[in-house]
Write a protein that binds this DNA or RNA. Structure first.
Lengths: 109, 109
DNA sequence: TCCGATACTTTGGAGTTGACAGTATAAACA
DNA sequence: TGTTTATACTGTCAACTCCAAAGTATCGGA
């Protein structure tokens, strides 16, 4: 890093929005799981994870959708059907996140 | 669960250790900040972030060190001096994490 | 009439984080 | 002698976030 300006506090704490969001439980996994399975329904994600609570998964999906990383499409059917997929931004982020998750998976297996 | 399908539940929830750890507040930023500033002292990180509480920063450093991603070196001096730097694993992870943080920074600026 | 299917909420308790104050040490200063 | 300074934390308690489990809404089918 440069010496003259050495420490810009903003530089390492983009806590503003997205990083904060990604720092919540299952956020990164949810994003990448949608990327891998899209279009994907709520129930599919729930079984794919197996150990996330429905309320948390629901909150994460809402977070990610609200941040413009996921798109939610709801069909007027009974029983309800909702499909999630990545937005363009979500796809870009997912591409960058994949190597991280892959490295972790590999290291832990 | 073993539907012969393509869904291995383990695949998207490496919650086991590291992802869980990275999903805590400031974990990703701390790792990358150490990578950018190493060798770096506690106080430098505190001012670089500006908005993290000392207890949380302390907890994150301990988490990351415990996971083998950071190395902590303590010198016998008064006032105390402690230096953090990336381990080899930490460096690999940091390399993969940087594009994520960079993308987020760019998108939010 | 009751059941099944789906995508969530709600609730109450447990776990995590934050702000702020405090600890320990010794050299430098008054 | 006594106070200040510097550093790297730790302690406390309130606020926030997360979890498991149960509940909600709807309508077609048995």
């Amino acid at each position: 890093m440069s010496e003259s300006t050495d420490l810009d506090p903003q530089c390492y704490c983009p806590t503003s929005g997205i990083i904060d969001l990604l720092s919540r439980k299952y956020a990164m996994q949810t994003l990448c799981a949608v990327g891998a399975l899209e279009p994907v329904r709520y129930g599919e994600l729930e079984t794919a994870f197996g150990d996330v609570s429905s309320s948390t998964l629901s909150a994460r999906l809402e977070d990610l959708t609200g941040a413009g990383l996921l798109e939610r499409e709801q069909y007027d059917e009974i029983p309800p059907r909702v499909e999630y997929r990545l937005s363009d931004d979500g796809e870009e982020l997912c591409e960058r996140l994949e190597p991280v998750l892959a490295w972790v998976r590999e290291r832990e297996s």
